[in-house]
Design a protein around this nucleic acid. Structure first.
Lengths: 240, 240
DNA sequence: ATACAAATATGTACTTGAAACACATTAACC
DNA sequence: GGTTAATGTGTTTCAAGTACATATTTGTAT
């Protein structure tokens, strides 16, 4: 099999290099798993078990198995680490620096995913898994800080255009909650009145006719995501 | 070395699979090389030399060498295929479907690049290399049609925000030429007056004080890209 | 019961940017 | 020297975004 691939790529110079070398690159995926809590965007990190990075945290990743798609691999990681299945996941960028992994050549594809940190099905797989506020993430293992930053950059770019943000919220939410998530992601304050106008012009929200409870002030209306959009969100990965 | 990586990813389930299997995935890059000619956006394609795809064209790609970065690999392909060095290159997406390569498992990272199709240094490496108008690209080998589409999508998304487009043009160009390139990329017609207003508000252009020659009508002013932006364009890859 | 605090809900004026449209000017060509 | 086909520069209109104000509702403390 390997030889067939090499042959397929028929390149004079390639022949000089041992065929096996071409399979000396491992492929992994890394997931930037994001949640929202206490008015902060948080990322799920695990203590690195490599000596080289002792004391540092890292993203959640794994080698891609020979029989699985890249997207499948990242869904697997999500499932294994959080117990959640139906989450938003988007490929962002692939990192291939030669020295990015101390043990050898590993090319990794970064994904970010958004989930409801208080989802009743959420079961973290490991004691060393912790949610860290985005603003307080320091040095990370590997090039994971770069990966995190590039995912955050993509998220910020997309969040105003497409209804991603709802994956971070529970089924029912108030406009104030929604605004607070935007503010946490964008790192800015938004004008409440303009914000409400803007989202109500899109077709993203459905008024549930219910009210908040257990708030120490006048309760606001509760909304949910327009169900028509929910499908399209999940479907995106398969298509692109 | 391989074993160290496996160990580094310490995952109970992984151990069940033969270690070597993890290096049974090859990594490649594919370049969507775009140029502009005759009011059309064109992509550089080569006849596929795989039996499975006989008669079909494919993008230009190659396996990534064990000692080279992903970005380096795509620069190498560009250099080898076009003789050009100083071109715009941007990573877009990584494709990893199990059956995307008939000879085995190959994960490929797609890049698009923009170059001046009439550059004096352009030397196509191969007789089977041809420029194809993107509107007339039919079936391609592998999943290269998907790759092409995703690169075009990214290009269309970026072209209004950032001054990429100048890589497709010669050093000196008129506003009409510039507008025609935009129209070719976006597939729409633009209002000349609004277009001129819009670009002149950005700091992208420098008036050369020269005029077009050899045009069968009133010649227009010639411009060049603001030199300050040129550096930032090239630098982008390294940073992100 | 009532006043107060704090957040909801809705509305208006102003500014900026995009879209539609018009006309005078210049150079090549016959 | 008139015609043609572009260039070059407006203006008006409309939509979207920003800044800002006021009335309303509920919980809480007195």
């Amino acid at each position: 099999m390997p030889e067939r691939i090499i042959k397929a790529f028929k390149n004079a110079e390639i022949e000089k290099i041992s065929h096996l070398d071409y399979f000396n690159i491992a492929v992994s995926v890394d997931c930037v798993i994001l949640g929202y809590e206490d008015k902060q965007l948080k990322v799920l990190l695990i203590k690195s078990d490599l000596e080289e990075f002792s004391g540092l945290n890292s993203l959640l990743g794994d080698l891609v198995r020979p029989d699985e798609d890249l997207d499948e691999a990242s869904y697997r990681i999500l499932r294994e680490r959080t117990g959640l299945n139906d989450v938003y996941l988007e490929q962002v960028q692939t990192f291939g620096r030669l020295d990015r992994h101390p043990s050898g050549r590993v090319v990794t594809t970064a994904y970010f995913s958004l989930l409801d940190l208080h989802h009743h099905q959420l079961r973290l797989s490991h004691n060393d898994l912790r949610w860290h506020p985005i603003n307080k993430v320091g040095k990370l293992a590997f090039d994971h800080k770069d990966i995190l930053d590039s995912c955050l950059h993509r998220l910020r770019q997309q969040v105003l255009e497409r209804p991603l943000i709802f994956s971070l919220l529970p089924e029912k939410f108030s406009l104030r909650q929604l605004q607070e998530v935007y503010e946490a992601i964008l790192g800015t304050e938004l004008d409440r009145r303009n914000f409400r106008k803007k989202v109500s012009l899109k077709d993203w929200l459905v008024d549930l006719g219910e009210m908040e409870t257990d708030v120490p002030h006048r309760p606001g209306k509760l909304y949910k995501l327009n169900p028509g959009l929910k499908k399209r969100l999940r479907a995106r990965l398969r298509v692109s």
